[in-house]
Design a protein around this nucleic acid. Structure first.
Lengths: 338, 338
DNA sequence: CTGTTAGCGCTTTCAA
DNA sequence: TTGAAAGCGCTAACAG
């Protein structure tokens, strides 16, 4: 159980260089004005010789700050998170901070993540969009920590919120489907949307649209697959063979929508003539499908705002900024599939 | 710059409960035999009341151990990493450890990751397959830390190595292409494979196969796209319009191979009759393409071995195990596309 | 310019 | 069963 890697400490570096630990600390932290060039060189040489690496725990304990931020995502393998990670890393680099990512793919992992965050494993965190399993209560428990929550379900409460207008954009997409004569619209959802344990906007938008237009809710048209390309393909294929043949598919993710297009093509179904397809997310990939994917999303994948908000909080000295809200405009992007 | 979240400490909990900090520590660490039931309850109540959360830095400093492990990946958005993260998390849960993920997508980020790891941000790490930009020297610099490196290029040197037989499997796939009459085989590579800065097996296997069979190396058939579905699609489309029309595509990733299939279909090219396609990775997704994707990979995505190796090291008391090598069997998996 | 020293918050001997 | 105290490795007053 014990694994005490014995690494050299500042004390040993100091001894070798013939100076005090304070001097070592000054040199290592670039406080140039505090130490002479000769001494500086001796310390650096000693550190090098011993292979000195500072202990992050000791430093963080003393500083009361880790100089790291955390990105909390729902799964690896979601294309948009890739860009989010990149944008956050860019901001972190600029601030001299590290980035750690945590994957929350179950309620148990959500607890673990909240624990780690509360134990101050990082100075702040971004909760990525669509991380289910993280309850409002858990978010509140984290509010001591600089936090940016990307969610339409959260209200700023000690943390910042980045929202999208996906609600309205989804409604517009669904209205469009109905306006073009679709009456049997299938919904291809995320697992957590369908179990009912965790409500989501996309599913809600779907149900609301049906109601708004006086269409029946048909449970057999609501299927799983938005998390997984293969599941989506199979769900759509099964739908085609099912009791109610859909004339449109509204997929809660572009990945699933793309699978839907493939499944429909493979089944010889004309898109959009026989079945229309709409996705959510505006992935680049939607531009290379045949027909190109009609979707709902931001004009471009860009998460600099969220990253900026986080670092404003993390680096803030004195009073914390009040909870802010930034809204990213999402629109209905009509291409060929609907 | 300062953000000293003032959180309650064991001292405050102790004061409120009317006991010493030692007792608080005993209670919080479940040393039931060391403290009476009455006291235990009082301490727990006090901690609850104050909203006490222990400081991970202070604890790690004292323990000389973080009870966290790190997963180092090359990018988010690679499907296989998803399973790897899951398998590692399962093992970590069992050991009561947390999992942090670091994304290394440039040489600068590699440096940063190595720094963090050396500063002991975690008790051990798995370096995922195909994380470019991490040099052998950097790996060696990390050898103090329990480490599992998933790479065929690394030799165990204070750390464990998980290898695959992808070399042989790729060779077999390429031999198959040649045996079935392919003479103009295109290579769809990762960016870092093509710049030449970082050699990889898949590209090497490709070149070796050409040489082995006396085929010309044609630079115009070596294109980029294995990192990115859209780029892959465009590369293949461009290839079709280029000076040398390929009769096979060997893609360094299944994602790219799938894009290749789509591009070929959209161009009205018959697969495999006119152009054969082979991928690498054996993603499930290869089963739903038309035709199903011929590929090279493991029989199933399973990274429990790597996780087990890591925790054997992390939890090892006393002598470190010597560097071990585990080899995962990869095979040529012939489906319809070649 | 450099050193002495007091903690950061926690765990764990050792003594009572 | 509980407490006093040492110290993990580091930084930053403060003193010289």
């Amino acid at each position: 159980m014990a694994n005490p890697l014995r690494r050299p400490t500042t004390r040993e570096v100091a001894a070798l260089a013939g100076v005090s630990v304070a001097t070592v600390s000054y040199v290592l932290n670039g406080k140039v004005e505090r130490v002479g060039e000769q001494t500086r060189r001796r310390v650096l040489a000693a550190a090098e010789e011993l292979g000195y690496v500072r202990s992050s725990s000791a430093r963080s304990l003393r500083l009361r700050r880790t100089e790291r931020v955390c990105l909390v995502v729902g799964s690896i393998g979601v294309p948009a998170y890739d860009q989010l990670a990149r944008d956050l890393s860019d901001a972190a680099d600029a601030a001299g901070h590290g980035v750690l990512t945590m994957v929350v793919d179950s309620p148990a992992r959500a607890d673990k993540a909240v624990d780690l965050l509360r134990q101050h494993v990082a100075d702040g965190a971004i909760i990525a969009p669509s991380v289910p399993y993280l309850s409002p209560a858990q978010l509140r428990a984290l509010a001591d920590l600089p936090l940016v929550v990307m969610s339409n379900a959260a209200d700023p409460d000690g943390f910042d919120v980045v929202r999208t207008t996906e609600d309205a954009a989804c409604a517009e997409a669904l209205d469009h489907l109905v306006a073009t004569g679709r009456r049997r619209i299938a919904f291809l959802g995320h697992r957590h949307e369908l179990t009912g344990e965790l409500p989501t906007e996309r599913h809600a938008a779907y149900l609301a649209a049906l109601d708004r237009h006086g269409l029946d809710r048909r449970p057999e048209l609501v299927v799983d697959g938005a998390d997984d390309r293969v599941a989506a393909y199979r769900s759509v294929t099964a739908l085609l063979a099912g009791p109610v043949r859909p004339d449109a598919v509204f997929a809660a993710s572009d990945r699933a929508a793309i699978s839907a297009i493939l499944a429909l093509r493979d089944a010889g179904v004309a898109i959009p003539d026989e079945v229309a397809v709409v996705g959510v997310g505006n992935l680049d990939e939607g531009r290379i499908t045949r027909p190109p994917l009609t979707t709902v999303g931001p004009p471009a994948m860009d998460f600099h705002d969220a990253a900026r908000l986080l670092f404003e909080r993390v680096l803030a000295t004195g009073e914390r900024p009040a909870g802010r809200v930034i809204t990213t405009e999402w629109t209905f992007i009509r291409r060929g599939s609907a």
